[in-house]
Design a protein around this nucleic acid. Structure first.
Length: 159
DNA sequence: GCCAACGTTGGC
DNA sequence: GCCAACGTTGGC
């Protein structure tokens, strides 16, 4: 059994918030059109991995809860749909360019951990999210960062 | 709305 | 393969 890994995934709450995920139970993470983020989803994310759910373009932005990977990567169906905003005419069904994973809801933090608060934590120094110019919508998170974030939020780090 | 920090595209 | 132009992300 491979060791569990941890990730952070960004979503704009106006588009799909953690409340939407709680309501739906699980969702497929469509629309990622960045190769680095795609590679992480396609090649690295495994069933049962932990996900920090981050609200971007929010006031304030921050980590709002936990999810976990409920299905490993498969081609993002939206890339083949000409009516979809994520349609990619250069992607072929027999050679898909974009992949996604499914995630399922796990928990919502009693209070969100804002980006500003996270920046104040010495224990999170070096976290990818806090690095200057970091825009990846899917990022790796270390086991110790995961435990620290859960502790700060006052929730169990167990999934 | 601004703009820094990227990433992608396409001419050469 | 270089790099200018352009597009996007996302904090502020």
């Amino acid at each position: 059994m491979a060791k569990r890994q941890y990730w952070l995934m960004k979503s704009e709450p106006d588009v799909y918030s953690i409340d939407d995920l709680e309501r739906d139970g699980s969702t497929y993470w469509d629309g990622v059109r960045n190769y680095q983020a795609r590679n992480l989803m396609r090649d690295k994310m495994r069933l049962g991995d932990g996900v920090l759910y981050y609200h971007s373009n929010a006031t304030p932005p921050g980590i709002v809860g936990l999810a976990k990977v409920s299905k490993e990567s498969y081609p993002d169906p939206t890339q083949f749909d000409p009516k979809n905003k994520y349609y990619d005419p250069k992607s072929k069904e027999d050679d898909p360019r974009w992949y996604l994973v499914d995630i399922e809801y796990h928990a919502t933090f009693p209070e969100m951990l804002s980006l500003g608060f996270l920046r104040e934590q010495e224990s999170l120094e070096g976290m990818a999210l806090l690095r200057k110019g970091q825009r990846l919508s899917v990022q790796p998170v270390s086991a110790s960062e995961w435990r620290t974030v859960c502790k700060l939020a006052g929730v169990s780090s167990k999934l």
